[in-house]
Amino acid sequence: MAEISRDTLLWIYERMRLIRCFEDKVAELFAQGLLPGFVHLYAGEEAIAVGVCAHLTDRDYITSTHRGHGHCIAKGVDINAMMAELFGKATGACKGKGGSMHIADVSKGMLGANGIVGGGGPLACGSGLTAKVTGSDSVTACFFGDGAAEQGTMHEAMNLAAIWKLPVIFVCENNLYAESTPWFYHCAARDIADRGVAYNMPGILVDGTDVFAVYEAAGEAIARARRGEGPTLIEARAFRYYGHFQGDPLTYRTPEEEEEYRRRDPLDQFRRRVLERNLLTADELDAIDARAREAVEAAVRFAQASPYPAPEECLTDVYVKYP
């Protein structure tokens, strides 16, 4: 922790707080009936996306999941464009054509939230291969959930990345439930990280509520990938505070479990630890909290004031060249 610069510490807290505020606001808007569709919220898992993306620049890539808002924010996607996308507005990141599950940003190397569980693994190999072929030192971080860990695509992707030594890190966000199915039921391995052995790559289990642990593990894995030594599998265990999607009755988990994880809240942990060590001040952190809340309110105002796409917009972007 001591070797993390002040600027990085501030950035980490700012990004985690922005994700939390964004997701809490989305939950509120959804409950008010102001947002359509499915929203899958990332609150509780902030330390994973932020701990990984702290090592990445705009030239690095990420692939994401249906629970992608946190990845977008950690990778620097503009929250005005994200919120507008959720509202289906023309100013959205994808012109209102993608929605919550399909936010992408080419300028940030964000290859898209992904509505298909396990869909991002093969794509991550593709951006990894691009980096390798063009001789750039870009790394791709492939985020996937414990549910996706059981998909064949993730096996195909991890094996391929390993045999070709692609600069990809596989970050399994084990939030304990694949929709409603507990991971100890759906996963034959003791830890998902154990599967690294099968691909001859390091498999590391970290506490996904501890941003310092994630930061350290991801730093090593990303450095290894940049050195051309191939992929790493990181399993980061955390807890999603909201349901699988908004409207999920959450009948499958216990209040004790939630209480335990609330005690380990990633933002509270961070505050406690940096304050104990006098690395940042409470005033600094409070100021970040206030700015994040205001930024999210501004994003909502921006989204609500933005126009809907014109009807004819539905016919654009199908093909680059037609016929």
Partner: peptide, 28 residues
């Protein structure tokens, strides 16, 4: 072998990798 790449028998990964590489600027 940089330009003619043998893959494992993994069709989803083959197409997904081609897609990701195309998004990154290659012509798979």
């Amino acid at each position: 072998e940089k330009r003619v790449k043998d893959t494992p028998i993994a069709e989803a990964a083959i197409v997904g990798l081609a897609t990701g590489a195309a998004m990154g600027g290659l012509k798979p």
